[in-house]
Design a protein around this nucleic acid. Structure first.
Lengths: 226, 226
DNA sequence: ATTAAAAAATGATAAATATCATACTTTTAC
DNA sequence: GTAAAAGTATGATATTTATCATTTTTTAAT
């Protein structure tokens, strides 16, 4: 069983402020999982009873709207924690978490997490800061959804994907989303998303290679996103 | 100077878990303000250096989009706290807060708030729960902005306004927003908002009396909002 | 390797929404 | 009290976006 001390999640998340003792306690109670691409970690409405540490891979947090479309609210990647909100609010999950790549995650039961909260003030402050960051991000996306055109949102999302998940040696976006998922991020119909990608392709902003995307003119794309 | 102990904010917000001692400390360091309708409490980008307790009145939290329109992200009312995110994140305000009615607020300096955080675990947990609630709300609104039509969002917002701020004896929505502000809540052009209000009026869902609004058929309106 | 299924792409069209113009009404300032 | 300004309302029109239909391409299964 892993020791948690060397884990990537410990370096990047709120776990960095845990003491040696707390890390040992965590290592003892955690459960490791492998999740295949496309599989859920939890679903909207589930009672989660703990948080997940993302050791490897990326997942989407999404919510099914009454029109039957799945809106992607956030992407979560290795080094991040997942499911803190439900533990703190003592509520079922508001969003579904589904793997976009094969993943490795660890589950830490609620009781331990709450103990860390009450016994380690640094930890609760750091988790709180992260949730505040999520709130700011959500507010900003809300404004973009309400006030920006689909074209602007697509441009902004492509920039975000490059800056957050990086590119491969050949310049293609490392994180591969289906057109439907990309549409679900920007909040539009799949066909509209595809059409705009074609348009960006023709006007030399991006290049479409199979289903993969390469950003060619980042400056113009950024300007388009405003 | 007020004592904080009897204050409405203490009854409804995270302040309820503060000890007598902490309340006294707070009463000593707080500053009371009166804010006239239309005046800002703080603006996007301001360094706020503390939190506000809303004793009386309602304000809007909004963000100016690059298209020049003001998107309303949240309404905050008496009994609520305001500005916690900036204090926790140690960042400038992400949103502007502007009074929709004459208001009475108290300002508590950052240092005291942080002291309460570190010394009173109940307080930090309760603030955290509230921020988690805001995050859930923001995620839900984001999905609505992305996936619902303007008509559905208007219907939902009218229901929200009635349920959150109540009605006057004659059934009119108590909180009076201008058409422009209502449009800024649902994320649409003012004219589109006005047109849909007219349509709702003609089809008997609501009644427009001057600039005030009365909900006539709440059932149908709710069904419309989905 | 071949075929079925899924995903991506594109065209045609309809629906939703924004924009611009203008009229009317209410509020505000002097 | 009156004029100017702001807010509300409505029409005409343009633009954006969704929907439905079809084709092409890619992926997966046998």
């Amino acid at each position: 069983m892993g020791k948690c001390e060397q884990c990537i999640v410990r370096q990047f998340s709120s776990l960095k402020v845990l003491t040696k003792d707390e890390l040992h306690k965590m290592a003892d109670c955690k459960t490791s999982y492998t999740i295949k691409k496309g599989q859920p970690i939890f679903e909207e409405g589930d009672i989660t009873n703990g948080i997940y540490c993302i050791k490897e891979g990326v997942c989407k947090l999404s919510k099914l709207s009454s029109n039957g479309k799945d809106q992607i609210v956030k992407l979560v990647k290795s080094g991040d924690l997942l499911g803190q909100r439900s533990v703190i609010s003592e509520e079922p999950a508001n969003l579904s978490a589904v793997a976009l790549e094969d993943m490795e995650v660890c589950f830490i039961p609620k009781n331990e997490v709450i103990q860390f909260f009450t016994e380690n003030n640094k930890f609760s402050m750091d988790v709180m800061k992260n949730i505040c960051g999520d709130l700011k991000e959500a507010d900003d996306i809300m404004v973009a959804m309400a006030q920006k055109s689909v074209k602007e949102r697509l441009a902004g999302t492509l920039i975000y994907l490059e800056e957050t998940f990086g590119i491969e040696k050949d310049g293609l976006l490392r994180l591969q989303l289906s057109r439907e998922e990309l549409a679900g991020m920007i909040g539009t119909a799949t066909e509209s998303c595809i059409r705009l990608l074609s348009e960006f392709n023709k006007s030399g902003l991006i290049q479409l290679i199979g289903k993969k995307i390469k950003i060619i003119d980042k400056i113009k794309l950024k300007r388009l996103a405003e």
